[in-house]
Design a protein around this nucleic acid. Structure first.
Lengths: 228, 228
DNA sequence: AATCCAAAGATTTTCGAAAATTATTGTTGC
DNA sequence: GCAACAATAATTTTCGAAAATCTTTGGATT
């Protein structure tokens, strides 16, 4: 793996997790020290991330972590629902045994991690399994373009979820694991209409919870700052 | 404008027009001579284009122009129909006077160029106006993510159209300008269902024509080679 | 003839410095 | 005090060479 690839992975990771806050300038001298490499691989990584809208660039003025806005969250969520529901229908139509097995396995792993407490609880591991579960649902859609866009939108919306997850500021009274199980069940039963409805509700609830948390959380988390 | 930006524009331009054929290796020494600049700006441009799937990259083995395939054409077209029809509905719902004016103006400019013959005929100018017309239809959808994906898919499918356009191998018996006019009219009348149906048919006809031309054209155009 | 291996060559990747540009500071004049 | 400007500093961008890696070539061996 080349240094440019390592730089890409590291920057992407740190931006998605909010360790590099939205809007923050990405100075090459800083990054060079932080990641222990020269300018060239960093600039290549930043150019890739610019194309993915995770960083913004201005000619001769360098790069910044892409800012967040509530408008973008709603935009990305709407489009996500449109694309993912269609992908879910395609997967239900085309999926074979190994696709089904992938869903069962991903759901099991997700529920396992969601049930863990104390030192075993690991929000990043939970997050990884959550992502894997949603990918497993769409894995059989047979459309590389769809999967790319789904991934882009997942990452875009994840940047809003993570600061909320970390402050545990999510409203109670919602059984997310039950939603996942119901979604998996409807999918495995090949009930496309039901599965699509559940997926849509799942995302609409999430975006409402996030918007609510942002509104209440007038503290100085990166997300709250971005929302103001 | 920095050299890296010039390199990006030039490479993108040459790849879309097929002047750099699909699958062709992009050696830095060659590109450095072709575009008269050092490696750094070229590598930055190539990394951006890689993120946009116009070039492929393999660790320590450099870059290539992204290949074409009939599967990808069908994939991109299906997704394009899904996203653009929804964007058209949104535009019809949200569009104001200046949006309408933009459509009228773009259609007029397109028809004007389409009617030109002899030395005034310019396939690239026609292509630019065609692109502008389709953008004008969706301009009011108020969704940056949608517009980005639409642009990506337009470029992806355009790479299949251009070699066909250049060999004039399109089947006759189709009045594309009439399709554009009907689409614009239904849109301006805010008849969303009709406009969406026309847009869908427009794309389905195009993809069928292209697939047909590729099948017949067993010569050695880049596209035909890619299809085999 | 086919296969392996080392050497030479070609190519990508990375660095460090130079060039170009933007941002900041300090000074002058009003 | 403050706008205008020059000098300085900070930063991005680009180049050219060095390092690392992959590819080809040409024998040596079986």
């Amino acid at each position: 793996m080349t240094l440019a690839e390592k730089a890409y992975d590291a920057l992407r990771h740190d931006i998605i997790r909010g360790e590099l806050a939205p809007g923050r300038p990405l100075r090459l001298a800083d990054l060079s020290e932080r990641y222990d490499m020269g300018f060239s691989p960093l600039r290549e990584a930043l150019n890739r991330l610019q194309a993915e809208r995770l960083v913004t660039a201005e000619s001769l003025r360098g790069f910044r972590v892409a800012p967040l806005s509530l408008d973008e969250l709603h935009d990305a969520t709407s489009l996500r629902i449109l694309i993912e529901t269609e992908a879910l229908r395609a997967s239900i139509r085309l999926g074979d045994d190994s696709w089904e097995a992938g869903i069962v396995s991903a759901l099991y792993a997700l529920n396992l991690q969601a049930g863990r407490t104390g030192p075993e609880a690991d929000i990043w591991e939970l997050e990884a399994r959550h992502h894997a579960f949603h990918r497993a649902l769409l894995a059989a859609c047979n459309s590389p373009w769809t999967l790319e866009f789904v991934e882009r939108l997942y990452v875009a919306t994840e940047r809003y979820r993570i600061p909320i997850l970390l402050t545990a500021a999510l409203p109670a009274g919602r059984d997310v694991q039950a939603e996942h199980s119901a979604l998996a069940q409807a999918t495995l039963e090949r009930d496309a209409d039901k599965a699509v409805a559940l997926l849509r509700e799942h995302y609409l609830r999430t975006v409402n919870d996030l918007a609510e948390a942002i509104r209440q959380n007038e503290s100085d988390t990166p997300l709250a700052k971005a929302a103001r």
